[in-house]
Write a protein that binds this DNA or RNA. Sequence first.
DNA 1: CATGAATGAGTCTTCATTCAT
DNA 2: GATGAATGAAGACTCATTCAT
Lengths: 217, 217, 217, 217
Amino acid sequence: MARPLPLLQPRKTPIQARSAHTVEAIHTACIQVLIDGGMERLSTTRVAARAGVSVGSLYQYYPNKQSLLAAVLEKHLMHVVEAVEASCLRAKGQPVAVMAASLVQAFIAAKFAAPDVSRALYSVASEVRGEAVVARLTQRSQLALCDMLATAADRRFGDLAPISFVLSTAVVGPVQALLASSAAEPVIERVREHLVAMVSAYLRQMGSEVVARKSPR
Amino acid sequence: MARPLPLLQPRKTPIQARSAHTVEAIHTACIQVLIDGGMERLSTTRVAARAGVSVGSLYQYYPNKQSLLAAVLEKHLMHVVEAVEASCLRAKGQPVAVMAASLVQAFIAAKFAAPDVSRALYSVASEVRGEAVVARLTQRSQLALCDMLATAADRRFGDLAPISFVLSTAVVGPVQALLASSAAEPVIERVREHLVAMVSAYLRQMGSEVVARKSPR
Amino acid sequence: MARPLPLLQPRKTPIQARSAHTVEAIHTACIQVLIDGGMERLSTTRVAARAGVSVGSLYQYYPNKQSLLAAVLEKHLMHVVEAVEASCLRAKGQPVAVMAASLVQAFIAAKFAAPDVSRALYSVASEVRGEAVVARLTQRSQLALCDMLATAADRRFGDLAPISFVLSTAVVGPVQALLASSAAEPVIERVREHLVAMVSAYLRQMGSEVVARKSPR
Amino acid sequence: MARPLPLLQPRKTPIQARSAHTVEAIHTACIQVLIDGGMERLSTTRVAARAGVSVGSLYQYYPNKQSLLAAVLEKHLMHVVEAVEASCLRAKGQPVAVMAASLVQAFIAAKFAAPDVSRALYSVASEVRGEAVVARLTQRSQLALCDMLATAADRRFGDLAPISFVLSTAVVGPVQALLASSAAEPVIERVREHLVAMVSAYLRQMGSEVVARKSPR
DNA sequence: CATGAATGAGTCTTCATTCAT
DNA sequence: GATGAATGAAGACTCATTCAT
């Protein structure tokens, strides 16, 4: 990946800049092709053509098709995970109701920022390599969730593992269904409220109540 | 497509004695191939070979690869839906906690009856044709859920649509994750309890409490 | 072809009657399939289905696809040849202008009686087996033409062979072009007049003038 | 499709040095296969093999089998059309008898330059795509014919459309028949004389005589 | 380094033909 | 005699990947 840079570099890493641009173009093209053709129609040639580069160049950056897909999926899911992590940080020390709202809100916002992209990547996620990526990033989310949950203002939890597992996976079903049906905004809104309610109720249920003091922490 | 109604349609059946066997063999082979190769390695030739029939025979019963996959997916999901429907019938008139337990239990049991099959079919579900099948059967589940929810002993619900939507989709995420990670029995057990708790809490939360009387019915 | 008839036959050759009907149905179906799919889409299965019989039955009457096509082509061309023969008989002893008109008229009428059939069969005619059929029937036409030409009232011909050859082939080009372009009636009419003029002029040119007597034979 | 205009389009040419060779090889191979197997036995695999390239290469230059055939047919017919056009130019201003001779001579020469190729391509011409090519090029011939006929030294014509139509189509029948029967040289010669006579007589018949003056050029 | 022509195994699908019922 | 299920070779076409330029 990190090829040795030639010794002289008049401008800011010109070659890397070019590479970065190419990689970015390939990445975008891959998603485009996926959106309007699905996994079925995706081919390295097509992606390269759409990106405006040669197939050869594509293979310069990705050793094979699978790795390209994995990279694209990873980047997309990374966004989602980062959104979740950020929301976890923001909700630290808050009551579980706030946590639930923050979490669900962040997840849905991230997924619906580019619904067609999210939709297109589901078929990538169910590939062999894709599942590994999903698993890895899901675990990362769980870490952030555990971190957050441990600081809940109004609840104390026993084993955080199953809770974070459920939290990190329970919303994907409904969201996937919404994406698949190209649901309208108000429908999404209503479902989001329900999910907040569900998660909130779940957390309240699973945690033992903490007697409120003056300043929690 | 048109499943034979139990007692009618005497015609065609005699000759189909063999056909039925062939179709069944193809069906099974398709799942086998899917299990040990995934969508990536699934080809009509491979399926036919595994079924011990010629490709030609496969195409006698399915106009193309997609329709074969759709049929296989449909049959599998139908089992799940039927399990859900049965559980909904059984839990009618019970308190929501019972409903939650019944539902989650039925869904997980159905999915884990043949974990590898369930796992293998996720990649089929994310195909174009697959999504349609999923959507159709999900809706059918929702009908059964609405039916059940309307009879809850301890709660009364306003708009059942979003609730049945959430119920029918919220458990698939966790279950999919469990399947993907080939989770061990105790883990599954623990998650199931959590899911029951979550669904139960959600339903209690969304419904307005009914003052208990002398047990209606 | 002529299978031995069983010894007892109460009605008018019942088996043959049935066979004849089946053969006819297959024949018609073959043309239909040809018309709306071309040679490309023609298959024995399709023809049999369209004829309402089983493939097996089709193979009872025709040993293979080629022979079916040859038979269908032959039957069609036979109509044309018979029309030409009839016109030759009618024009016997007439002046060449009348012969020309009679011939061209008959040929065009025969071809345009069912334009789509004529059109569809061109692709059959260019098959290996088809060319043989065409050659054979063309020769038969030439015999009739020779017969007729020898009786022309106003001209005497030397070598009839090349003349009958040219006559039997010169009109097919224009007619084929008209069929291919689905020309409208008035266009066809105009071209027919031209062809009559051409053939007429040709015959007048090639024959040595006969001094008109009182009763030309 | 877009034939390279002689002096323009410098781009792509360098790399095409090889491509050109490949394309040429495919073209030739296609004709070879056609000659010794007919449309029936023509397959892209076979053509590629005969050309000494891979199927993939064939598909790099032709999107599908049909387009390959259309291209091959077009190239062949183009030769014929160009021969006709050239003969039309040469015969401009001559008497119709000369025109007839020039035209028939050119057509027959073009077709018999490579009789097996001409023969092989008849089956291509009766394909769907082939008919379109034939129609297009026939029209182009008609333009040249009209141009020529308008300058006839000894005749003046009314509506040139039907005449050019008949001229451009009337000789193909006899020629096709000669090709099909692999006629010997003297037979061809005799038929050619007849065709010249026929066309000549036709043109004299259809045009109104022009009073010869001091030879207007 | 980029390019894109070439490869050829592999995919889906069709179809003539046979044969057990 | 009729049927139509089964066969499997063969066809059209695709695509990941390589490598000479």
